[in-house]
Each structure stands twice: as structure tokens, then as C-alpha cells.
């Protein structure tokens, strides 16, 4: 009964609060620790490493921004940087038009729920779940100039002049890889767009139809503005993916961006700089880190700006 003092009551509730805090800390501890150790610490270290000279795995003297100057202004190496950067730009622009444009068309058609709608979804998404390694090698085999299925087919239909060594010519290598990439990924934006379209209330579309809008009007005036959030996400993901593009060119063109650096990418250049190769010489963690920091700043800045801009045109569906 009421033999406890006011102090006792207070401490009982304080104890409960402390216990609650311990429990929350216990829940958060493993995730925070692992994320901090294996993601945040390396990210911060990368900045730190970029201002030092490196000899293999051993850190040398502080060199300020010398590594950055080396990456950006040394004419021996910066030609690779600019070449790779413009290739990445080409990748982004092409994927936006070919991959995402096709995805939008497919999504708009699938949104009408035609016969075979489920089947189409599964088929379009099938390559998405496969490893880039499998896709890359598979298409490398298909695109083999002599034995590959593509050229065999072209010769069969008497288009012999078209049977080019697709991955061997600087003019066609990057384009071929981009088509492979689009083939691999197109299902992803398609289904993201489709999900966004399905979230638009059917009433709105029916109201527009009653207002006399054509299918094209509906797509342009109702669906397109209301699926803006999905567009934002896909544009940003495509941007990040394009400037981190690595697997397909690595597998299909090799570490040196063959042929003739026409498929060289920032990712490959970074790998070569950091871990060494024929063209980049020995492994150099200093300039490698500087390059990584520059790439990160570029991607971060532009994806933030893009997100800002794209989000501002989104309309809240109430």
C-alpha cells in the first residue's frame, strides 16, 4: 500500500524509461555498427586517402590536392578521364531514350491490361533477375563475329554486309553493349512505370474519357503528369547506374575498354587506376581515391539537383 515515498514512484518510472532506452539501443546497435564500419568508414576514408601519396598498401606523405591535380590536369592521364566521362554521358543519354522510352511505351500498353498481361510482365522482367555476368557472356557468345548467332542469322537472311564484328569495331561496340544493357534492364523501369500508372485512380481516367479525351490525350495529360514520382526515381537510378556502369563493359570489352577505349567508362578507369593495369601502370591508391571522390561528388551533385527538379513537378495524389 501507500508506504512508498514520492521518490520511489519517480524512480520506478525512471527505471522503466532507462530499460526502454536500453532496449532501443540494443535494437539499433548491430545495424548501426555494421553500416558505420563497412559503409561510412570507408566512404570517409576515401576522402582522407585521396590527399596522401601511396606506395602499394602503405600510406606515404600528405600531398594536399596533388592527386586531384594529377587526375584532372596531367595530360598523360586526363585524356582517359575525359574519354571515359563522355562515354558515360553517351550511356546515360542512350539508356534514357532507348531503355526508358521503350519501358514507358510497354508500360502504357500493359496498363490497358491486354490479353496475356501477366505473361508479358513475367517475360519482360525475366532478364532483370539474371546476373550481368550471365547476360554479358551470353551476348558475347551471340555477338561472336564468326560463330555468333547474330551474324549467322544476318548471313542467313543474306545481309552479309551487316555481319560485322560488333564488339570489335569502335563504331559499334558501345552501341551493342547498350542494346544488351537495355535488353537486360528494360523490364525494371517498365514495371515501375506500370505500378505508378496502376496507382492513378481509375475514376480520373474514366472522367477524362467522358470529357472526350483520346487515348493519346489521356496518356499525355493525365497519366504522364501523375506518374511523375516514378519518372523521378527511374531518371535518378538511370543516372547513377550510367555513371557507375562497369559489369557489361568489363565483361564484353575488357578492363581497357576495347576496342580502342571506345567502351572505356569511369568505373573501369577507376579500377585500373586503383588496382593497376597495362595502360594505367601500377596500382595507385592515391590517384585512385582522388578519382573516386571526384566521381562521387559528380554523381551526388547531379542526382541531388535532378531529384530536386523532378520532385518539384510531382503532384500529390490525394
Amino acid at each position: 500500500m501507500s508506504t512508498l515515498t514520492e521518490e520511489n514512484y519517480k524512480s520506478a518510472s525512471v527505471r522503466r524509461k532507462r530499460l526502454r532506452q536500453l532496449w532501443i539501443a540494443f535494437l539499433l546497435f548491430p545495424a548501426v555498427t555494421i553500416l558505420a564500419t563497412f559503409v561510412f568508414l570507408p566512404m570517409i576514408s576515401a576522402i582522407w586517402y585521396s590527399v596522401y601519396e601511396w606506395d602499394g598498401l602503405v600510406r606515404g606523405d600528405f600531398v594536399g590536392l596533388a592527386n586531384f591535380a594529377e587526375v584532372l590536369f596531367n595530360p598523360q592521364s586526363n585524356k582517359f578521364l575525359f574519354n571515359a566521362f563522355f562515354n558515360n554521358v553517351k550511356v546515360f543519354v542512350t539508356l534514357m531514350i532507348v531503355q526508358n522510352g521503350l519501358a514507358l511505351a510497354l508500360a502504357l500498353l500493359l496498363a490497358r491490361e491486354p490479353k496475356g498481361y501477366r505473361f508479358y510482365q513475367v517475360v519482360f522482367f525475366l532478364p532483370v533477375i539474371l546476373s550481368t555476368v550471365i547476360i554479358g557472356f551470353q551476348w558475347k557468345l551471340f555477338l561472336n563475329p564468326i560463330f555468333g548467332l547474330v551474324n549467322t542469322f544476318l548471313r542467313m537472311v543474306e545481309l552479309d554486309s551487316w555481319a560485322l564484328p560488333w564488339l570489335g569495331l569502335p563504331e559499334t561496340a558501345l552501341g551493342s553493349m547498350l542494346i544488351v544493357n537495355a535488353w537486360h534492364w528494360v523490364g525494371f523501369p517498365t514495371l515501375v512505370f506500370l505500378a505508378a500508372i496502376h496507382r492513378i485512380p481509375k475514376d480520373l481516367i474514366e472522367a477524362a474519357r467522358l470529357d472526350g479525351a483520346s487515348e493519346w490525350n489521356i496518356a499525355r495529360d493525365i497519366i504522364w503528369p501523375l506518374m511523375a514520382p516514378a519518372v523521378t526515381i527511374i531518371v535518378v537510378l538511370t543516372f547513377i547506374g550510367s555513371f557507375n556502369w562497369f559489369e557489361i563493359p568489363y565483361i564484353m570489352g575488357g578492363l581497357e575498354g576495347s576496342p580502342a577505349y571506345s567502351t572505356d567508362m569511369l568505373g573501369l578507369l577507376f579500377y585500373r587506376t586503383a588496382f593497376g593495369s597495362v595502360s594505367a601502370g601500377n596500382s595507385d591508391f592515391g590517384t585512385g581515391s582522388a578519382l573516386a571522390v571526384l566521381i562521387f561528388i559528380f554523381i551526388f551533385t547531379f542526382s541531388t539537383i535532378a531529384t530536386r527538379y523532378l520532385t518539384s513537378r510531382e503532384v500529390e495524389l490525394s
Binding site: 539499433l28 553500416l35 563497412f38 576514408s45 576515401a46 557507375n244 586503383a274 585512385g288 551526388f300
Partner: peptide, 26 residues
């Protein structure tokens, strides 16, 4: 703060931190 910590993790491309990660794991 904790939510932002996790959220900002979404934006960090770990591949670019491969050098420190390598040294750390080594």
C-alpha cells in the same frame, strides 16, 4: 538522426570506396 543515418546510406555508392574497404578488410 538515426533515420537520416540509414537514409543517407542509400546514397553512398560503396564501389567508390573500394580502396579503403580493401585496406580495412585486409
Amino acid at each position: 538522426m538515426v533515420s537520416l543515418f540509414f537514409l543517407s546510406g542509400l546514397m553512398l555508392p560503396l564501389r567508390l570506396a573500394i580502396i579503403p574497404l580493401f585496406i580495412q578488410l585486409k
